[in-house]
Design a binder for these strands. Structure first.
Lengths: 132, 132
DNA sequence: CCTAAATATGCCTTTACACGTATATGCGCT
DNA sequence: AGCGCATATACGTGTAAAGGCATATTTAGG
């Protein structure tokens, strides 16, 4: 029924997932942090759970939701073909990213350690075998 | 219909994008290959174009559509946080993948080193059909 | 100009889904 | 037991988006 792409199409659901990356959260915490109604949160969590994106554990009256690691694989796999495409266009992409780095001074992780010259290859994966 | 996530939520649109990865295509070719109606193709291409995913060049009466490299960046960037999350769970992921490898038995290249420090990481190539 | 081919657009119907409000269920406490 | 907190579900509603069909637009060629 619902592909992973449908799941993450919803902004609130993406927000929830992003929230859960850092640590598990209760429904109430999500509700508070994302300022959405409690039923809305529960419903989205239901969807995420059915889709296998999150799982819940019981803590008294609370339900703690946490990410399931395999969840976004489908999307990542699909995206892979485009990464290959990008890599054929790295030059243009580099230029594009340089512009973004300048203008988008927003929530970039303060952990801007070495490799600050950006080893941008979609993700710093050493793999180059890449069975195609 | 703003975000890139909405764009790729549509299966036919994903199919079109996947088709364009290999090379540019005319509307008619897309119509034929994906077996969808011509108006449908045109409409999806309109959406993709407005969203900056593709661009078209004119060839007589045909319009040739091709991918724009920067297009799926938004998605990729968003996905990055989860890749970090996955990497924190490589062990579990490894186990999960081992199970899959077992059941799917795909001729695997000698890229396979058990307990290796993440030789597979975020992208693992695997091709499959869409499931709607 | 007129026609045919390729593509785009407009209108209409159907469906899906996100939300709110209200209510139900579960759990702990005294 | 009864109350209160935390979470889940039901129902009704509005909206938006996708598909089909018909038609407009563009371009090449006679």
């Amino acid at each position: 029924m619902e592909s992973a792409f449908d799941i993450i199409a919803e902004p609130n659901r993406r927000a929830i997932l992003s929230l859960l990356v850092s640590s598990q959260q209760s429904v109430g915490e999500i509700e508070r942090r994302l300022r959405m109604s409690q039923p809305a949160v529960s419903k989205h969590l239901r969807v995420l759970r059915d889709a296998g994106f999150v799982e819940s554990t019981v803590d008294a009256q609370r339900r703690l939701y946490q990410l399931k690691p395999e969840s976004l694989q489908e999307v990542d796999v699909w995206l892979a073909q485009f990464r290959r495409f990008w890599n054929a266009h790295v030059d243009a992409l580099e230029r594009h990213l340089d512009r973004m780095d300048q203008s988008q001074t927003k929530s970039r992780a303060p952990t801007r350690k070495k490799t600050n010259k950006r080893s941008r290859g979609a993700n710093r994966e050493r793999d180059k075998g890449e069975t195609k």
